[in-house]
Amino acid sequence: MSGNLVCVGTGMTLGAHISPIATSYIAQADVVFSLMSTGITERWLDEMHTDVRSLQYCYQEGKNRNITYNEMVEAILTEVRAGKKVVAAFYGHPGVFACVSHRAIKQAKLESIPAHMEAGISAEDCLYADLNIDPGKTGCINYEASQFMFYQRNIDPAAHLILWQIGLAGDKSLAKFSTGKAYRQVLVDLLLETYPADHQVILYQAKVLPIDTVRDEHIALIDLIDAELFMHTTLVIPPSEEMQPNEKVLAKLAAIDKQELNAKNRPELTLVL
């Protein structure tokens, strides 16, 4: 008897986003592990299968989240190794800002156990719809807020900048459930190197329950320090500058266009025997 693992997403909004294939995998599993964002969505999943096991017990304030995630991976893989058909269901997309699914699949494959992921509707997908942003218009860069602070990253002020988990910005310990104003001040100082203090930014929260209201709060960048932030709040920074033409590349392309045009207009050669 050989086990397998499928990581599925339940989407962001209860009932609205779960895909037919995710629903089918859940129904046909021997064991379902769940990592949901609210107690109500966790209950919803509980009602889909007779053996749903929440991974929430692994979380503890003060405990390094890296340890938590490894415990979750181990809990999932123990059942897979026992030969069971296992589904790990995550809210949103199972592979976006989610290390447990990636780690579990990677480890399963190392052990020659079949494992794969099915896409789900992520918070980012909802953000584009709810805020009416087309990432293809001027470009869009996503970073996890703390990672954005810890490493040297390039900001393009002509594109949208989206910072996830803004409520945890600057947490190096991986053990906190929120960070305070002092941490946020560091982030704002970093952003002020590129954006004006009064630049309008958006605090976003997707709809998780059908009775939820989308958070689409516009504030000045400087007011981020005192804003009410949660773990699931996302910061969206619209472009502050126009896109600047890349004259060097445009000149190269124009030269190619000219060459192609010349080649097209060249008189056709006739073979005379």
Binding site: I40, C99, Q147
Partner: peptide, 18 residues
């Protein structure tokens, strides 16, 4: 609604960066 359903609110669902 959570109280009516006897549900304990989930407080943690953070996912850390690479």
């Amino acid at each position: 609604l959570e109280k009516q359903m006897c549900i304990t609110p989930i407080i943690a669902h953070a996912l850390h960066p690479a």
